[in-house]
């Protein structure tokens, strides 16, 4: 691959993302280079097209084809109680604050297929907050949201989730939260009742009002710095004073515009509390 071919590929990627934005309203222009290029390369390899510019003509005309691209370039991988120490800290050090409110509103941004939203519901219910919270779980991809709302997981994952749950300080038996049917695990209705799944596009849509807790873990790692800042500003505008912002374990508010308005609750857990000012 020489410099010229390199340059052509750059042009193809940016033209395609520009076209997708204009035609479908999905804005991937501010997604981090490395992941988007790798994903586009994989999508292309599976497609009948040889180049992105060849694919572009059909992509911009055929919504079905675009959906396959969308699946290919948005992340929808998540698990229950990913990073058990984080969920343990949330349970032990954040929930006690949340319990001081009569009713708590939570925004889980970039919820993908919902595993973390349901994990959080388990924590809140076990800590006596059932009926006292509403969680808005959002994602850019409507099909993923529909999957999340079903609350049906692969049975084969349950062993791992059970281990994660136990390590995260779970107080009950994880098996109580699902019913096995064939190769699926159907999550209990009590976990779904307070969760509202809705589409939301972090690149374009507005904030949610007066949240006490905002989770956005391992979503912004796919964004360029400017889009990260946009998201953080959205979260900040959504959070009430004293509210909590939770990021992924390798994300940080360090060097970010709103760092000064927050204090880190526990070192290395990426849980930040908004100052009252």
């Amino acid at each position: 691959m020489d410099e010229a071919a390199d340059r052509v590929q750059d042009v193809e990627v940016s033209l395609l993302l520009e076209g997708v934005h204009q035609v479908y309203g999905y804005d991937f222009r501010d997604y981090a280079d490395a992941s988007i290029r790798r994903r586009l390369a994989h999508w292309l390899a599976e497609s009948p097209f040889e180049t992105l510019s060849q694919a572009q003509s059909q992509l911009l005309r055929d919504p079905q084809l675009f959906v396959s691209l969308l699946r290919g370039i948005t992340v929808n991988v998540t698990e229950m109680f990913r990073d058990p120490p984080f969920f343990k800290t949330l349970r032990d050090q954040v929930v006690p604050f949340l319990k001081t409110y009569p009713f708590v509103k939570i925004w889980h941004a970039g919820c993908a297929t919902g595993e973390e939203a349901y994990s959080l519901a388990i924590v809140l219910n076990e800590e006596g907050m059932a009926g006292r919270y509403r969680m808005y779980a959002t994602d850019i991809d409507e099909a993923v949201i529909a999957t999340a709302a079903e609350g049906v997981l692969r049975l084969s994952e349950m062993q791992k989730y059970t281990r994660n749950y136990q390590k995260s300080g779970g107080r009950a038996s994880f098996a109580d939260y699902y019913t096995a049917r064939y190769d699926r695990a159907i999550l209990a209705a009590e976990l779904k009742s307070a969760v509202v799944f809705a589409p939301h596009n972090l690149t374009a849509d507005a904030e949610f009002g007066e949240m006490h807790l905002v989770l956005c873990r391992n979503v912004m790692i796919y964004f360029k710095p400017a889009l990260k800042e946009r998201c953080l500003a959205l979260f900040d505008a959504s959070l009430a004073g004293g509210g909590f912002l939770c990021l992924g374990m390798k994300e940080s508010l360090e060097r970010r515009a709103l760092a000064t308005g927050y204090e880190e609750l526990v070192p290395n857990m990426r849980i930040y509390r908004k100052r009252y000012v």
Partner: peptide
């Protein structure tokens, strides 16, 4: 540009 990124794919 030589920056490293992380992913949870």
């Amino acid at each position: 540009d030589g920056l490293m990124t992380l992913a949870t794919d």
